[in-house]
Simulated assay, not measured.
Amino acid sequence: MIPATHEPAEPPQNQQMLELSTRSVGDALVLTAVGEIDLLTVAALRTALYDQLATAPPLLVLDLGGVSFLASCGLAALVEFERAAAEQSVKLRLVSTARSVTRPLQATGLLRTFELFDDVRTALR
Protein backbone atom coordinates (compact mmCIF):
# COMPACT_ATOMS: atom_id res chain seq x y z
CA MET A 1 0.00 0.00 0.00
CA ILE A 2 1.28 3.47 -0.90
CA PRO A 3 0.68 6.15 1.75
CA ALA A 4 -1.28 9.22 0.69
CA THR A 5 0.89 12.28 0.08
CA HIS A 6 -1.86 14.67 1.13
CA GLU A 7 -5.33 14.60 2.58
CA PRO A 8 -8.16 14.85 0.02
CA ALA A 9 -9.24 18.24 1.39
CA GLU A 10 -5.74 19.70 1.00
CA PRO A 11 -4.79 21.52 -2.19
CA PRO A 12 -2.32 19.65 -4.41
CA GLN A 13 1.32 20.26 -3.51
CA ASN A 14 2.08 22.17 -6.74
CA GLN A 15 -0.39 24.89 -5.73
CA GLN A 16 1.52 25.39 -2.51
CA MET A 17 4.88 25.59 -4.30
CA LEU A 18 4.01 28.60 -6.51
CA GLU A 19 1.81 31.52 -5.58
CA LEU A 20 0.68 33.86 -8.34
CA SER A 21 -1.04 37.20 -7.99
CA THR A 22 -1.92 39.97 -10.41
CA ARG A 23 -2.52 43.66 -10.03
CA SER A 24 -3.10 46.56 -12.38
CA VAL A 25 -0.88 49.64 -12.28
CA GLY A 26 -2.25 52.19 -14.70
CA ASP A 27 -2.37 50.49 -18.11
CA ALA A 28 0.18 47.87 -17.06
CA LEU A 29 -0.33 44.51 -15.40
CA VAL A 30 2.02 43.10 -12.77
CA LEU A 31 2.07 39.34 -12.30
CA THR A 32 3.97 38.30 -9.17
CA ALA A 33 5.31 34.78 -8.72
CA VAL A 34 6.53 33.46 -5.37
CA GLY A 35 7.96 29.98 -4.95
CA GLU A 36 9.40 27.44 -7.37
CA ILE A 37 8.92 27.27 -11.12
CA ASP A 38 9.47 23.66 -12.18
CA LEU A 39 7.63 20.80 -13.90
CA LEU A 40 4.95 20.77 -11.21
CA THR A 41 4.20 24.49 -11.36
CA VAL A 42 5.04 25.68 -14.87
CA ALA A 43 1.51 25.00 -16.15
CA ALA A 44 0.08 27.37 -13.53
CA LEU A 45 2.56 30.06 -14.59
CA ARG A 46 1.72 29.55 -18.27
CA THR A 47 -2.00 29.79 -17.56
CA ALA A 48 -1.57 32.98 -15.54
CA LEU A 49 0.59 34.60 -18.21
CA TYR A 50 -1.76 33.77 -21.07
CA ASP A 51 -4.79 34.86 -19.03
CA GLN A 52 -3.16 38.27 -18.66
CA LEU A 53 -2.16 38.37 -22.31
CA ALA A 54 -5.83 37.94 -23.25
CA THR A 55 -6.48 41.44 -21.87
CA ALA A 56 -3.73 42.82 -24.16
CA PRO A 57 -2.07 45.25 -21.75
CA PRO A 58 0.60 47.46 -23.34
CA LEU A 59 3.03 46.32 -20.62
CA LEU A 60 3.17 43.12 -18.59
CA VAL A 61 5.67 43.02 -15.74
CA LEU A 62 6.50 39.58 -14.41
CA ASP A 63 7.89 39.95 -10.89
CA LEU A 64 10.09 36.92 -10.19
CA GLY A 65 11.74 38.43 -7.11
CA GLY A 66 10.18 35.78 -4.89
CA VAL A 67 11.13 32.83 -7.08
CA SER A 68 13.51 30.47 -5.31
CA PHE A 69 14.00 28.04 -8.22
CA LEU A 70 13.66 28.45 -11.98
CA ALA A 71 13.91 25.21 -13.96
CA SER A 72 14.60 24.92 -17.67
CA CYS A 73 10.89 24.29 -18.33
CA GLY A 74 10.21 27.68 -16.73
CA LEU A 75 12.77 29.32 -19.00
CA ALA A 76 11.14 27.65 -22.00
CA ALA A 77 7.73 28.94 -20.90
CA LEU A 78 9.12 32.47 -20.60
CA VAL A 79 10.65 32.35 -24.08
CA GLU A 80 7.42 30.97 -25.55
CA PHE A 81 5.38 33.63 -23.79
CA GLU A 82 7.72 36.46 -24.80
CA ARG A 83 7.16 35.53 -28.45
CA ALA A 84 3.38 35.39 -28.00
CA ALA A 85 3.40 38.75 -26.22
CA ALA A 86 5.48 40.36 -28.97
CA GLU A 87 3.02 39.09 -31.59
CA GLN A 88 0.28 41.00 -29.76
CA SER A 89 2.49 44.09 -29.22
CA VAL A 90 2.59 43.50 -25.48
CA LYS A 91 5.89 44.47 -23.89
CA LEU A 92 7.18 41.94 -21.34
CA ARG A 93 9.57 42.95 -18.58
CA LEU A 94 11.01 40.68 -15.90
CA VAL A 95 11.87 41.74 -12.37
CA SER A 96 14.36 39.95 -10.15
CA THR A 97 17.69 40.32 -8.44
CA ALA A 98 17.54 36.78 -7.04
CA ARG A 99 20.41 34.58 -8.17
CA SER A 100 17.92 31.72 -8.53
CA VAL A 101 16.45 33.64 -11.49
CA THR A 102 19.32 35.70 -12.85
CA ARG A 103 21.79 32.78 -12.99
CA PRO A 104 19.66 30.55 -15.28
CA LEU A 105 18.90 33.54 -17.52
CA GLN A 106 22.59 34.38 -17.71
CA ALA A 107 23.77 30.78 -18.21
CA THR A 108 21.39 30.27 -21.14
CA GLY A 109 22.06 33.65 -22.77
CA LEU A 110 18.48 34.75 -22.20
CA LEU A 111 19.52 38.01 -20.58
CA ARG A 112 19.82 39.25 -24.17
CA THR A 113 16.21 38.24 -24.84
CA PHE A 114 14.50 39.74 -21.80
CA GLU A 115 14.46 43.16 -20.23
CA LEU A 116 15.42 42.50 -16.61
CA PHE A 117 14.84 45.08 -13.89
CA ASP A 118 15.76 45.29 -10.22
CA ASP A 119 12.29 46.32 -9.03
CA VAL A 120 8.71 46.65 -10.21
CA ARG A 121 8.67 50.44 -9.96
CA THR A 122 11.57 50.76 -12.40
CA ALA A 123 10.07 48.16 -14.75
CA LEU A 124 6.84 50.14 -14.92
CA ARG A 125 8.57 53.28 -16.24
Score class of each variant (00 low, 15 high):
residue 25 V to A: 11
residue 48 A to M: 12
residue 42 V to L: 09
residue 21 S to I: 06
residue 27 D to I: 00
residue 34 V to K: 00
residue 19 E to V: 01
residue 41 T to I: 09
residue 24 S to G: 09
residue 19 E to P: 00
residue 35 G to M: 06
residue 30 V to A: 00
residue 27 D to A: 14
residue 45 L to Y: 02
residue 34 V to L: 02
residue 23 R to H: 08
residue 48 A to R: 10
residue 43 A to W: 08
residue 31 L to A: 07
residue 42 V to M: 12
residue 19 E to I: 00
residue 33 A to N: 08
residue 35 G to N: 06
residue 22 T to V: 15
residue 29 L to Y: 00
residue 26 G to T: 05
residue 46 R to I: 13
residue 46 R to L: 14
residue 42 V to P: 12
residue 34 V to R: 00
residue 32 T to W: 01
residue 38 D to Y: 07
residue 25 V to D: 12
residue 31 L to F: 01
residue 24 S to E: 11
residue 35 G to P: 04
residue 38 D to R: 07
residue 26 G to W: 05
residue 33 A to K: 07
residue 47 T to M: 12
residue 39 L to E: 13
residue 29 L to C: 04
residue 30 V to K: 02
residue 20 L to M: 04
residue 32 T to I: 04
residue 23 R to K: 11
residue 41 T to C: 11
residue 46 R to C: 14
residue 35 G to Y: 01
residue 20 L to N: 02
residue 25 V to R: 11
residue 40 L to H: 15
residue 48 A to W: 10
residue 34 V to F: 02
residue 27 D to Q: 12
residue 38 D to P: 08
residue 37 I to W: 03
residue 25 V to Y: 01
residue 45 L to A: 03
residue 36 E to A: 07
residue 24 S to R: 13
residue 35 G to Q: 08
residue 36 E to L: 03
residue 40 L to S: 15
residue 31 L to E: 04
residue 19 E to Y: 00
residue 29 L to H: 06
residue 45 L to V: 05
residue 39 L to Q: 13
residue 40 L to N: 15
residue 28 A to N: 00
residue 24 S to P: 00
residue 36 E to I: 07
residue 28 A to V: 01
residue 44 A to H: 13
residue 36 E to S: 06
residue 45 L to M: 08
residue 25 V to N: 07
residue 42 V to R: 09
residue 22 T to C: 14
residue 31 L to Y: 03
residue 31 L to P: 01
residue 37 I to N: 04
residue 47 T to C: 10
residue 23 R to P: 07
residue 47 T to L: 12
residue 22 T to A: 15
residue 36 E to Q: 07
residue 28 A to G: 05
residue 25 V to I: 08
residue 32 T to F: 04
residue 32 T to S: 04
residue 28 A to E: 06
residue 30 V to Q: 07
residue 34 V to G: 05
residue 35 G to T: 06
residue 37 I to P: 03
residue 48 A to S: 15
residue 44 A to N: 13
residue 39 L to T: 14
residue 48 A to G: 11
residue 34 V to S: 01
residue 45 L to P: 07
residue 35 G to K: 04
residue 19 E to S: 08
residue 31 L to R: 05
residue 21 S to V: 03
residue 43 A to H: 13
residue 22 T to F: 11
residue 22 T to I: 13
residue 48 A to V: 10
